[in-house]
């Protein structure tokens, strides 16, 4: 069987962790060819992921910004013969793969957390309240995989890198701009430790307590939807059903009540610590260690003592 993987590229740089995790899932299904929409250097980096036997690199400007019309077309042009088409369940994978699936007249399986066999997959539904096992009867299986559910593939011998280009770029959509907040902190979905703040933090300034603890621990910063909606944190820090799904070694939830939509994004973390002043907060039901305390007292003390 031959598996086609769309590598994750952000700002012209390979997102190694997300790609290597998708490759782990894909390699269970067969021989992996990866497509990198970005510079040759990104392709060469992907080529070193164990399990990839060939890398296709497309340097065309038309696919550099992830526009779905062009990336989907490029995949269709290069994935003929593939039994499976796989991408990380990132915003780019989720944007492109359903489009690819419809062009092939097949269904798409999104957010897959386990590959049972070549036809059968597990995925969460209802914000993770249930796990469904589904078998696909389609000729080509198109799936996005939840990176938090797979270990990253190791480095291996470099696979050959071949250049490809898009037959004809679509003019349906154009990229205008990209706003990214630069940060020295680890990336949320690949961090070993995540410190996450919620509405309880009270203000953008209060959120500095969260970043302070994160910096002390070398952790990534996350936020609940309420904290993002209120402007305490950037949208790309949101953890949950509508945000990112993380499963770090340690997740510290501060001033977060633990709504099911938030739990959907973090309850598979290895160790969960919750700090909340309400002893009945639902977050305590998934926490390994619960501290009922006022965060404005507990956080400075914790940061000081670590």
């Amino acid at each position: 069987m031959s598996v086609f993987v769309l590598a994750e590229v952000a700002g012209g740089v390979l997102a190694l962790d997300a790609t290597a995790k998708a490759v782990t899932a894909a390699a269970k299904l067969g021989d992996v060819t990866a497509l990198v929409c970005g510079p040759v250097a990104a392709g060469e980096e992907a080529a070193k992921i164990a399990g990839i036997s060939k890398v296709l690199v497309c340097e065309d400007a038309a696919v550099a910004d992830g526009l779905a019309e062009n990336v989907a077309k490029l995949i269709i042009e290069n994935a003929s013969g593939a039994t499976h088409i796989v991408a990380p369940a990132s915003t780019s994978g989720k944007n492109v793969l359903p489009r690819v699936a419809a062009l092939l007249d097949v269904m798409v399986l999104t957010d897959v957390i386990e590959i049972v066999n070549a036809e059968t997959f597990k995925r969460p539904i209802y914000a993770g309240n249930a796990i469904q096992t589904v078998a696909s009867s389609d000729s080509v299986k198109v799936l996005t995989v939840r990176t938090a559910a797979f270990e990253a593939a190791n480095a291996g011998a470099a696979a050959p890198v071949v250049s490809v280009s898009l037959s004809e770029a679509s003019a349906l959509s154009t990229h205008i701009e990209h706003k990214t907040l630069e940060s020295d902190r680890p990336e949320l979905t690949s961090a070993k430790i995540v410190v996450c703040g919620g509405r309880g933090v009270g203000s953008e300034n209060g959120f500095a307590l969260i970043s302070g603890l994160a910096d002390k621990l070398g952790a990534a910063v996350g936020a609940s939807r309420a904290a993002v909606d209120l402007g305490y944190a950037a949208n790309d820090l949101q953890v949950g059903q509508t945000g990112k799904v993380v499963a770090p070694d340690l997740y510290i939830a501060v001033g977060i009540s633990g709504a099911i939509q938030h739990l959907a994004g973090m309850k598979d973390s290895k160790v969960i610590v919750a700090i909340n002043k309400d002893e009945d907060a639902p977050i305590f039901q998934v926490a390994d260690y619960s501290l009922v305390a006022d965060l404005f007292e507990a956080l400075p003390e914790l940061t000081g003592k670590l």
């Binding site: 309240n129 249930a130 589904v134 009867s137 389609d138 998934v286 926490a287 619960s290």
Partner: peptide
């Protein structure tokens, strides 16, 4: 196109330590 074989509860977590 997809056949649902089973629908299960997610794995539950061990009890919290206060």
């Amino acid at each position: 196109r997809l056949k649902v074989l089973t629908t299960e509860e997610p794995a539950s977590r061990t009890a919290s330590i206060r």
